[in-house]
Design a protein around this nucleic acid. Structure first.
Length: 359
DNA sequence: CCCTCGATCAC
DNA sequence: CCTCATATCGAGGG
C-alpha cells in the first residue's frame, strides 16, 4: 500500500506578500492580475483568509472585490518572479522528503513517501510535520498537508481543514471521507462534469457508484469515465510522477481595448511572441508548433495552430506564424477580440552544432 | 500515427 | 465585470 502526501501552500501569493511587508500583517489582502484596460479591470488571483471573510474570492473581478472589500482590503499586483523564487526553495524542501516527487503548479506537490514512511501512517505524519516545521521556520509560511493511500484522497485531505492543517485519512476511512464532500468539491469534477452528472441523476458520490463503468465511459470518454468510476470508490491508481520540462510555453494578454484591427492585434502578438521566446530560449531545444488563441468580447476562446515542417528556434518564426494564423482567423470570422495569446509546443532536442565561438 | 482544434479542469 | 498558464483528452481528418 502506498502512502501519498499532498502539500498545498496556504493562500500562497498573499502569504508571501504579507511576509515581505509586515505592515500588511493581519489585513485582508487580494493579490490581483490587473489587465490594464482600466483602473480596476482584472481578477483576483489569491485572497488571504481575512479577505475571504469579506467575501473576496480568487477569480473574482477586481471591481467586484473592491465593493466587497469595503475599503478595508489591500489590493496588490502579482509579483510572479518573487513567488517563483520562494516556490523553488519550498519545492526543494518537499522534494528531499519524498521517494517520488511531483510538483503541481507553483504552490503544491504530491509526495510518494511509501518507502520513507516504511508504509506506516504514523511515520508519514512525522514527515509531514517535519515539512511543515521546516517551511514555517525557513520561509515563515504555512501550508496544509493531506495524507492518504492515493493522490485523490491526499489532495482532498490537504484541502479539508485549511489553513495550516494536517489531515490523515487511512484506507479504511477513505470512502466515508470522500462521501462527505459535495460532488463539485471533488478534485477533477468541475462545473461541466457536475452538470452532466446531475443530468444523469447523479447528485452524490454515492449515486455515482450506481453507474456502470461502461456508461460513464460513453458519457465522459474512456479515461475520465474510468477515473470517475474509481473515484466513486475512493480509488485512484495514478502514480506520483516527476514532472519533466514544460511541454508548452504560452502567454496571453488582454488588449487595451477590444479590437478587430489586424495591426493592433499584430503588435500584441509580437510582444507575446517575444515573451514566449524569452521563456523558451534557455532551453536547448527547438519548437515545431506555434499556436494562437483569440478570445472574443463574449469571452469565447478559439485557437489555431500550425506545426512546422522542420523545427525552429527562431523568435521571428514565432512572430510570423502567429501573425499568419491570426490574420487567417480574423479574415474568416467577423469577431472583435478582447484577449489574444501565443504559444509554442512540440519541442525537440536541438542537436545543432555549437557556435564557432564555443567550438 | 500525426495534426488541428475544442473542451475541461484548476492554479 | 470577466487573469493567466499548462496538461490532458478526444474527435475528426489525413
Amino acid at each position: 500500500m502506498k502512502i501519498i502526501l499532498h502539500v498545498d501552500m496556504d493562500s500562497f501569493y498573499a502569504a508571501v506578500e504579507e511576509r515581505e511587508n509586515p505592515k500588511l500583517k493581519g489585513k485582508p489582502i487580494a493579490v490581483c492580475m490587473f489587465s490594464g484596460r482600466s483602473e480596476n479591470s482584472g481578477a483576483v488571483a489569491t485572497a488571504n483568509y481575512p479577505a475571504r471573510k469579506l467575501g473576496i474570492k480568487s477569480g473574482m473581478p477586481i471591481a467586484f472585490a473592491k465593493k466587497k472589500g469595503g475599503g478595508k482590503a489591500v489590493f496588490l499586483k502579482v509579483n510572479k518572479p518573487l513567488y517563483e523564487e520562494v516556490s523553488d526553495r519550498i519545492m526543494g524542501v518537499l522534494e528531499k522528503n519524498a521517494d517520488i516527487f511531483e510538483q503541481r503548479g507553483i504552490d503544491e506537490a504530491f509526495l510518494d513517501v511509501s518507502k520513507k514512511a516504511k508504509n506506516d501512517f504514523k511515520e508519514a505524519k512525522k514527515i509531514a510535520e517535519r515539512i511543515k516545521q521546516e517551511i514555517k521556520k525557513k520561509e515563515r509560511l504555512t501550508c496544509s498537508a493531506g495524507i492518504g493511500t492515493n493522490k485523490l484522497v491526499a489532495k482532498m485531505a490537504s484541502g479539508f481543514q485549511k489553513p495550516d492543517s494536517l489531515t490523515l485519512v487511512e484506507e479504511k476511512d477513505a470512502r466515508r471521507f470522500l462521501e462527505q464532500f459535495p460532488l463539485e468539491k471533488l478534485w477533477g469534477i468541475g462545473p461541466k462534469t457536475l452538470e452532466r452528472l446531475n443530468e444523469m441523476g447523479v447528485g452524490s458520490l454515492d449515486d455515482l457508484k450506481e453507474i456502470t463503468s461502461e456508461k460513464l465511459s460513453v458519457e465522459f470518454g474512456d479515461k475520465k469515465g474510468k477515473w470517475l468510476y474509481d473515484a466513486a470508490r475512493g480509488k485512484d491508481e495514478s502514480p506520483v510522477e516527476p514532472k519533466g520540462e514544460r511541454e508548452q510555453i504560452g502567454r496571453i494578454m488582454t488588449l487595451k481595448e477590444d479590437s478587430q484591427d489586424v495591426e493592433l492585434i499584430g503588435n500584441a502578438l509580437d510582444t507575446l511572441s517575444h515573451e514566449v521566446f524569452e521563456k523558451f530560449k534557455e532551453r536547448d531545444e527547438k519548437f515545431r508548433t506555434v499556436s494562437v488563441v483569440a478570445i472574443s468580447t463574449g469571452l469565447k476562446g478559439k485557437s489555431r495552430s500550425k506545426t512546422l515542417q522542420s523545427a525552429s528556434r527562431d523568435p521571428e518564426v514565432i512572430k510570423d506564424v502567429a501573425r499568419e494564423l491570426m490574420e487567417k482567423y480574423l479574415k474568416g470570422e467577423n469577431v472583435t477580440l478582447r484577449r489574444v495569446g501565443v504559444g509554442i509546443s512540440n519541442f525537440e532536442k536541438d542537436i545543432g552544432q555549437k557556435s564557432l565561438a564555443e567550438f
